[in-house]
Design a protein around this nucleic acid. Sequence first.
DNA 1: ATGAAAGCGCTAACAG
DNA 2: CTGTTAGCGCTTTCAT
Lengths: 334, 334
Amino acid sequence: MATGPTIRDVAARAGTSTAVVSYVLNDGPRPVAPATRARVLAAVAELGYRRNNLARALRANRSSTLGLVVPDLAKPFFAELTRAVEDAAFTRGFRLLVGSAHFDAERENEQLHALLDARVDAVLLVPSQEPKSAVALLRRAQIPHVLVHRTHPDTVCVAGDDTDAGRQAADHLLGHGHHNIALLGAGAGDDPVSLRARGASAALTDNDRPVPQWAVLGCPFPNLREEAYRATRTLLATRPEITAICATTDEHALGALRAASETGRRVGEDLALVSIDGTELGAYLAPALTAVTAPFDTLGADAVDAVLSSSGVAPAIRQHQFTLTVRRSCGCRS
Amino acid sequence: MATGPTIRDVAARAGTSTAVVSYVLNDGPRPVAPATRARVLAAVAELGYRRNNLARALRANRSSTLGLVVPDLAKPFFAELTRAVEDAAFTRGFRLLVGSAHFDAERENEQLHALLDARVDAVLLVPSQEPKSAVALLRRAQIPHVLVHRTHPDTVCVAGDDTDAGRQAADHLLGHGHHNIALLGAGAGDDPVSLRARGASAALTDNDRPVPQWAVLGCPFPNLREEAYRATRTLLATRPEITAICATTDEHALGALRAASETGRRVGEDLALVSIDGTELGAYLAPALTAVTAPFDTLGADAVDAVLSSSGVAPAIRQHQFTLTVRRSCGCRS
DNA sequence: ATGAAAGCGCTAACAG
DNA sequence: CTGTTAGCGCTTTCAT
């Protein structure tokens, strides 16, 4: 790969010094006479000069590159989040280095180290597991970072209001008059699925419709679809009184949809389904999925903004609201 | 961000020179005495030294970073391809910079320039449009590159055998005894959709089942799902003799599935559907999608391998085979 | 087998 | 307002 013209070549052609060229290129930190600036710009154009960002990064100790690690780049939720982050980064003049952790703590750790070694300016992490050790690593490295989607008390986090999302989902089902609602997803932790499940549970209980224990279905990561499918098959076979399902993620909903279809239940007709996530996928399922939708773009943008201004910011959860997207699976006839 | 210990610190602590430390760290290019090596390694461990890859990259003129630009990071097909590429890159010790082009030529161009400016070692491009100008740009920049998924005669390309994929899809439908098969997706270009459509068309014609012109539905990018949905609605309403649909991508299939569902046709029962792509999504649709599946991992791995060994390699299409994944939408009762 | 030193391309302090 | 110059941290020649 030919290295191309350097700032030196530009300076020579413009009959000035490298310092001035640098000032022009960066609009500072020193002023440059209009005439000189014009000559520099002309030289840049004529030579087709492009700055070597590696050198710039080394010198300035900032690379204009952000790092993002997600559990799985191909899962719709993370894919949409990644797109949002990339978009926000690009808009702000940053590049994005991505890594997939395969839902594996060890791999996540390696990805994080790869990013640190690459000297990214900041890292955004969508944790695959309980993020304690990852947060410790990031703190030790003294690198600006944010947790996205999943939180931890020791650092800055950008997340949806998962508890409220759970409530919204349950409330919608309640509004349809359902009495026997099952919950797909469960947990006692502070991960999104647990939070959503507890939020939904609370809404149900508040309305005198507490979910019996057998109707709360835990589905371990990362095989959400498959687990949800199995759980729903069993549920539908053993508990015919269930008329509605609240899925804590679109992945769960996908599994439930398949189970319902295979057992002859018509979702949107004799079985209501509301999901949480709201990935693009939902709009084209049959029936189209009613979902409590995460603000992907807002999450991505806020995560980038947070991490770029996070010099010494105190740990906090920057929380964003979900919005209900009504489609067909809940039984609404729009 | 504290910069941490440098190679100089390590050298000092090990009582040797920076050159030797470098030799140890890189296993070459010069040999180092076992005792010295041990001292260096000890110093590295004690100081928690981590090499500054920015400096290394500047000096060595290679960044161990690959760049990937795709039309849309969040679309399942590209998301799975991205995961495969990231995986292959990671395995080979490379980092991955990604960019989403939003199916826009201008944005694709900017993303490409961003990668060049970042001094990536090579770029992998999944073109959003006819790649002529992108290829020209890459050639001019003299940077190793591959086109993935879509081809161009002037450069190295890694792609599936789309024509054959079209044939496979059509053949499977033919095997089910269908006479009136519609084709979702069309085109005269050498993009995957056109190739698949023509492959399917050819298979049908070869078997004396040529598709009437009205049964070939063009669906312009990037709104494949929506376009396919509309086209299928119309088709189903006006041509009841159609008993099978061959979708050229899973996106098309998603739209068709929804249209079928809304008009009361039961896919897998009174309407057969075969798709091409085979994203993970298909397994959990209702009914599960029979699809001619792209070898995502192979494509990703081969693309990375190709671009890493592409010093002076002649333009060529490295073609990979699709495999049929039989599920329910075609009417098979497994 | 090892050390000293040059320099990758850039930015910014220092000196006019 | 502009030129000269010292490095950023690393790899690698050139000496020993």
